[in-house]
């Protein structure tokens, strides 16, 4: 009978539902969202592409650094584990708090510098 009172009390409580697109819940400081890539710090070592468990990072030729390549992030494949951020020796990759990535077109989910 513990339920009868509890349920009745909820009639006068504010619903806990958040009307998502209009109001948002706070996100944790450490949230792992979309990448931010600082091209000036990248040396093109390729560690991120080698470590990425989801193969979401591909190296493309570039003249921005000595190794001649920079990473491209496929956000549709990314599992947001944060391994690239952790492995990068020059702190050129950072995961931001941005998470609204849904898109009808996969091509818009390719992220690279510049």
């Amino acid at each position: 009978m513990a339920m009868i009172r509890e349920v009745f009390k909820h009639l006068f409580k504010r619903p806990v539902t958040v009307k998502y697109p209009f109001e948002k819940t706070p996100i944790a400081e450490r949230y792992r969202g979309k990448h931010e890539f600082y091209v000036d710090r990248c040396v093109g070592c390729g560690l991120c592409a080698r470590e990425c468990p989801a193969l979401a990072i591909e190296l493309v030729p570039s003249d921005k650094n000595v190794n001649g390549r920079i990473p491209v992030f496929y956000l549709d494949k990314c599992i947001f584990c944060g391994q690239c951020e952790r492995i990068c020796p020059r702190a050129a990759i950072r995961l931001t708090k941005f998470y609204e990535l849904a898109s009808p077109d996969r091509k818009t989910l390719v992220y690279s510098a510049g």
């Binding site: 944790a28 400081e29 450490r30 949230y31 792992r32 599992i79 944060g82 391994q83």
Partner: peptide, 24 residues
Amino acid sequence: MDLVEMISGNRVTPSMNCIGGVVY
């Protein structure tokens, strides 16, 4: 879930462990 998100940055899959210890 909020606690896990606060500690690790993700609600469900914290990716907390690594070989040799933990990350966060």
